[in-house]
């Protein structure tokens, strides 16, 4: 399945892009994260949440959607 992943804030700096599409056959969000950690080792030390089809999900959620997003917290004001 082709999924699109959007990256926000610091995460986009780690992946060096704000969006990418990958062909992914894993089942869970955690499987996807492991793939991304292998591709972007620096991602492991970052804090972020994952959204699937515009809804925040946990690592044990099944991948059902075609649009995911990695969202870090911002502190600036």
């Amino acid at each position: 399945m082709i999924i699109t992943i959007k990256y926000f804030g610091l995460i986009a700096e780690v992946t060096n892009q704000s969006e990418e599409s990958i062909d992914f056959s894993g089942r869970l969000i955690s499987d996807l994260l492991n793939t991304l950690y292998a591709k972007y080792p620096d991602l492991k030390n970052k804090d972020f949440q994952v959204a699937q089809n515009q809804e925040l999900v946990s690592e044990s959620t099944e991948i059902t959607g075609q649009e995911l997003a990695l969202l870090p917290p911002f502190s600036g004001g």
Partner: peptide, 25 residues
Amino acid sequence: CLFPNPPQKDAVPNCSEIGVLGVLP
């Protein structure tokens, strides 16, 4: 409910360290 705990210290830089587009705030 969105971010249960603060990130590790110094993991996210603030504006004084990295800059910010003035109109954004």
